[in-house]
Amino acid sequence: MNRLSSSGVALSAPLSLLLLLVFLVPLALLFPISLQPFQDGAAGSGLTLGNYSELVTDSFLRSVVVETLLLGLVVTLVCLVLGYPLAYYIVQATPRMRLALTLLVIFPMLLNVVVRSFGWIALLANRGLVNNLLRDIGITDAPIRMLFNHFSVLVGLVHVFLPFMVLMLIPAIQAIPKDVQNAAYTLAATRRRVLWSVTLPMSMPGILSGSILVFVLSISALVTPRMLGGGSYKVMATLIYDDFLQTLNWQAGAAMAFALTGMTMVLVFLSSKLLNKFGGNE
């Protein structure tokens, strides 16, 4: 169709307009703010890249960025290590078992992150379920500090994103043709060998896309780190929250936000490139 279809324009106009006014324009308008200096509690004049360079030069900010990325990495790895066996099990289970397990994986996803974090608080607090249990059984006297630290944030994030990982791994493992695996059995003779030399490599596209998804979501997380890490636990998202609603340093907050966006975009782009490369290896 060479001329612009009038119905095509009419159909996409409302959403395009909405996205323009409530998505693109606000983002575009925020960008200059990230380039403003913040002096004595208010916006200064002129433009500067200071807010961005601070992310690397300022030791505190740099550590927050690095910690966020490390946290993301660890969460991704744990999700992979826990999720792959589950996904593998589901793929080779009977249809009934497969349906039941898949539903049990999806169900937590539908629940609010706030609610889930609250559940972990109730579990891990000093007067929470786990500590009470340990004390009742007599294993400990004093409560073990399991909340408002790296451990609780890690557990919380893994809990939130594990289903994503599993749901992306399942089709990838399922796609491996059964006869390839069977052929490998006759050659390698042990299940473990087949797993390492055939199944894992061939499910690589799923591993990659699942990992990148979980990583990107982890570094952007706000609710879970805040609730399970406490008010003083800092990741990029909680820093942005504090900047905008507490210290009112919108300039720094905007720079952090765009830095986060930049990282996300790069990773998503990389992931689609990698998938194209791997996808051809069938």
């Binding site: 099990y89 994986v105 559940g119």
Partner: peptide
């Protein structure tokens, strides 16, 4: 491992 992970996923819900 599979069942442990599934149980882990349901844990906080039950607690709530």
């Amino acid at each position: 491992v599979a069942f442990f992970v599934v149980a882990f996923l349901q844990l906080p819900i039950i607690v709530v």
